[in-house]
Design a protein around this nucleic acid. Structure first.
Ligand SMILES: [Mn+2]
Ligand SMILES: [Mn+2]
Ligand SMILES: [Zn+2]
Ligand SMILES: [Zn+2]
Lengths: 145, 145
DNA sequence: ATGTTAATGCAATTATGTTGCAAATATAGC
DNA sequence: GCTATATTTGCAACATAATTGCATTAACAT
């Protein structure tokens, strides 16, 4: 079986990106998490392995190529999650709902929950829909019980 | 007929807030706009009439009292709009859709468009829903034609 | 008019994100 | 395996949004 690092390297090459340490590390971290990951968290985990600016540029490149998508939490800080599939440099297809837990502050991609179509007033042309639900996540609900 | 300033003063008193110049000015500005207003815009318009910190604190107090609600734009910066009604210090009832124009960057409260209820995975408890649509607003669509 | 409490102003600090440029390095072609 | 080249990185500086502590000021209840 093909290992994870090999898959990531192929993913980079496929997207015309050189396979560098910071890029592989970001993919490694993001893929190992069950929720979207904030830029500050990534910065902290990567420490001096990569410069802050490099991290920002890696994230920007990945987003442009359709490898990851960005979700803003309720404070407006950027969180990133690997795109499920079907996303490319041309367009993202991540129109699923995101859930921002008020307790643990994690952001979950609810891939199974699609954003419903909307009827907007005449003249408005909708391009994208971002739906963020806030509340208590399944994991935090459990812990209370 | 009761003038606007009188109404604002009553609103402040009703919420246990002293009627100060910066607070009245913020209400004045927000009420005169057709879309949500960003903190940077408010700061610029108010100039040296009030300190930046005071502005932040006024906005925070208003939000807590249910006088205004905050909407984050696609960049994550805070925008504020006066609550239609039914909002209080206890809870906000602004579950309408927001529209962020890619062209003029204005954020419109689509008060008539309610956020549809959602079915989320077991365990998740939804508290609030924030739906931001992006695209081209009615005003910008007009101008192109 | 006075006292009390709330609100403001100022200075300093933190957090997030951006830009320009020189140095380093991944990799394509030889 | 080298070498040339374009990409990527690191560093320094900057920009912007937001927060904290504290002394001063001002609203308003009495
Ligand atoms: Mn997602
Ligand atoms: Mn609104
Ligand atoms: Zn949680
Ligand atoms: Zn517009």
């Amino acid at each position: 079986m093909e290992n994870k690092t090999e898959r990531f390297e192929k993913l980079l090459v496929k997207n015309g990106l050189k396979r560098t340490a910071p890029r592989l590390q970001v993919l490694e971290i993001l893929s190992g998490r069950d929720s979207a990951t904030s830029q500050p968290y990534l910065e902290q985990v990567m420490g001096k392995d990569a410069d802050r600016v490099t991290l920002y540029r890696v994230l920007q490149a990945f987003e442009e190529k359709g490898i990851i998508h960005k979700v803003l939490d309720q404070q407006g800080t950027a969180n990133y999650a690997i795109c499920s599939d079907g996303c490319s440099a041309h367009e993202h297809h991540d129109e699923h709902v995101h859930f921002n837990c008020d307790n643990c502050h994690k952001i979950y991609c609810l891939d199974a929950v699609k954003v419903p179509a909307l009827k907007v007033p005449a003249g408005f042309k909708v391009e994208h829909l971002n739906l963020i639900a806030t509340g208590i996540c399944a994991s935090c609900s459990d812990k209370v019980n």
